[in-house]
Nucleic acid binder design. Sequence first.
DNA 1: CGTATAATTGCATCATGGTGCAAGCAAGCA
DNA 2: TGCTTGCTTGCACCATGATGCAATTATACG
Lengths: 126, 126
Amino acid sequence: MVQASKSPGPAAESSSRCCAGLEDLLSPRLFKALSDPRRLQLFVRLAGEGCACTVGQLADGSGVDLSVVSRHLAVLREAGVISCEKRGKEVWCTVQTGEVAGILRDLADALDACCPPGAAGEPAAH
Amino acid sequence: MVQASKSPGPAAESSSRCCAGLEDLLSPRLFKALSDPRRLQLFVRLAGEGCACTVGQLADGSGVDLSVVSRHLAVLREAGVISCEKRGKEVWCTVQTGEVAGILRDLADALDACCPPGAAGEPAAH
DNA sequence: CGTATAATTGCATCATGGTGCAAGCAAGCA
DNA sequence: TGCTTGCTTGCACCATGATGCAATTATACG
């Protein structure tokens, strides 16, 4: 929303020779979802519990209101970190371990393929 | 700061059998650093430029004040995403591709080793 | 020295986001 | 139908964070 559409920008963008697909892999939404300690706590808790909990179960012992947990889970869900399924009155949340792990690996691969040592821009002595 | 020290908590934490080291790998600081679109833009730009730029170079064409860029770079540096080296008057920033990729891979591995399908908590039909 | 350049930091302002309470909605049950 | 439970959403409040301008520090140059 802020970064518009790739934003050609006034400055020279000609040097995008490497790290081509990096930008597409870096999703602010994903990182924003994992940037909050409370959400991270819920994430770990959800993973530790066997990757499936109801909102109420996660709220128990979290120290915050159930509405807060509900909102945090919504953020995680919109980021694709977890998925939720309604069964009766309850909503069961599941960690998307495979999906998230895949994204992180793609990102790691893109980074490794990026910026070869002594590629360019590095000043020798100046 | 918020999550205290592992927080034994009132609720049952007995089910931390899996995803043991997951919590230690999930650093709010790292994700927070990558959660801002502007910082992500600087990150991509820095990677695309050959992984080495001065603060001024990054500020050019970024559309924001140099002080803003400086602050964003500080956040990235404190998160270990980049490293900065002062040479003369200028500060050269470098993307820590290997470090970041390593962290992401460790996290991906931990997630894959986590939550085996049909482990527990999953309701069959209820 | 004094000046210019590069970058950081202080300060004020504004936007975003986390939180709790209460109301609303959906689903099961008597 | 009325009631209870599980969860979501609206609203207000407060903390955090992003931004721009100005002042400060550090380094190079004359």
